[in-house]
C-alpha cells in the first residue's frame, strides 16, 4: 500500500508542478505582459516603468522560479485590480465556493444514487427509462441556461427564492441544484452499472438463498459493494465541480472564487487568474489522489495500477 501511495503522490506532485508552469506561462501568451497591463493608451515610458516595476524585464524562467517559490509559501503576489494580496483575496472567496461544492456533490449523490439503484433493480422499467432520460438530458443542459430558467421560475414567477447573493441558505438552493446536476449523470450511470453487476453475482444469490430479506440483500450486500467506485468518482467530480463553479457563481452573482476568477479575467488581473487556475487544479489533483488511495485501500487489486 505504501509504495502505491508514494508513487501516486510523486505523480500528483509532478502533475501539480507542470500545471503551475502552464498557468504561469499564460501570462506570456499576450506577448508582452507589461504592455497588456499598461493598457492601450500607455506611452512607451509607462510600459518600461511597469516592466521594471513588476520585473518583466528578467528571463521568464527566473520569474517563474520566483513566482513558484512564493506560491509554495502561500504568497501569490498582489492583485493588479484589487491592490490586495491575492492569497487573502482568494481565501476569503474560497469558503463560498467550497460550501457550494459540498452542497452540490451532496445533492448529486442524494439524487443520483437512489435513482441508479432503483433503475438497476428494475432494468427497462419506467424508472430506468426516466433515469436514462435524466442522464442524457442532464449532459446536454447548458448550466448557465438551466440556472437562468430556475431564476425565471423560482425568483420571478413564484418569488420563493432569491435570484442572487449568498446571505442565507436560501441563496444556495438554486446554485446547488445547477452545480449538482452536472455531476449527476455520471454518478447515476456508475451506480446503476455497479448495482446491475453486483446483483448478478454469486454472493447475492447466496444471500438470497440463505433467506436474507430483499432490503438487506440490496442495501447491505449489493449497494455496499457497488458504491465503492461511486465514492471515488464523487471525489473526482468534486474537483471538476469546483472548476465549474465559475459559471454557476456568475449566473447567481455568488461571490465565491469562481466569481472572482471571472471578475479578474475580465479585468486582466493576471496574478489572481494564475493563482486561481493553480488552486483549482490543486483541488482536482488532491481529490483524484484521495480517490486513488481510497480505491486502492478498498480494493487491493487497484494497487498494481
Amino acid at each position: 500500500m505504501l509504495p502505491f501511495i508514494l508513487k501516486r503522490l510523486g505523480l500528483a506532485l509532478l502533475v501539480a508542478f507542470t500545471v503551475s508552469f502552464i498557468s504561469f506561462s499564460l501570462l506570456f501568451l499576450s506577448g508582452d505582459p507589461a504592455a497588456a497591463l499598461a493598457g492601450e493608451t500607455a506611452s512607451g515610458e509607462d510600459i518600461e516603468a511597469i516592466r521594471t516595476l513588476y520585473g518583466f524585464d528578467r528571463p521568464m524562467m527566473v520569474q517563474y522560479g520566483e513566482w513558484l517559490f512564493s506560491a509554495v509559501r502561500g504568497d501569490f503576489g498582489e492583485s493588479y485590480y484589487f491592490k490586495l494580496p491575492v492569497a487573502s483575496l482568494i481565501t476569503d472567496r474560497l469558503q463560498v465556493t467550497m460550501l457550494l461544492g459540498l452542497c452540490g456533490i451532496t445533492f448529486a449523490l442524494l439524487t443520483a444514487v437512489p435513482l441508479g439503484v432503483a433503475a438497476a433493480i428494475r432494468p427497462n422499467s419506467m424508472i430506468d427509462r426516466l433515469a436514462l432520460f435524466l442522464s442524457v438530458a442532464g449532459q446536454a443542459l447548458p448550466s448557465f441556461w438551466f440556472g437562468l430558467i430556475l431564476i425565471v421560475l423560482f425568483s420571478i414567477k413564484f418569488q420563493i427564492l432569491p435570484p442572487s447573493g449568498a446571505e442565507s441558505w436560501r441563496h444556495f438552493v438554486m446554485p446547488t441544484i445547477v452545480l449538482g446536476y452536472y455531476a449527476m449523470p455520471a454518478i447515476m450511470r456508475l451506480t446503476r452499472a455497479g448495482m446491475l453487476d453486483v446483483l448478478n453475482s454469486d454472493y447475492i444469490r447466496t444471500a438470497r438463498a440463505k433467506g436474507a430479506g430483499e432490503g438487506r440483500v440490496l442495501f447491505k450486500h449489493a449497494l455496499r459493494n457497488a458504491i465503492i467506485p461511486v465514492v471515488s468518482l464523487a471525489a473526482v467530480q468534486m474537483g471538476f465541480m469546483l472548476g465549474g463553479s465559475i459559471v454557476v457563481e456568475s449566473v447567481f452573482a455568488l461571490h465565491g472564487a469562481g466569481y472572482l476568477a471571472w471578475e479578474s479575467i475580465a479585468r486582466n488581473d493576471l496574478p489572481t487568474v494564475q493563482a486561481l487556475i493553480l488552486i483549482f487544479s490543486m483541488f482536482y489533483i488532491t481529490f483524484t489522489f484521495l480517490a486513488d488511495v481510497l480505491n486502492a485501500w478498498l480494493d487491493p487489486r487497484m494497487r498494481s495500477a
Binding site: L26, I246, I265, V273, L276, I277, F280, S281, Y284, T288
Partner: peptide
C-alpha cells in the same frame, strides 16, 4: 487537472 472553463476564458 486544468479547469477547462477557467483556462479557456483566460
Amino acid at each position: 487537472a486544468m479547469p477547462v472553463v477557467l483556462v479557456a476564458l483566460a
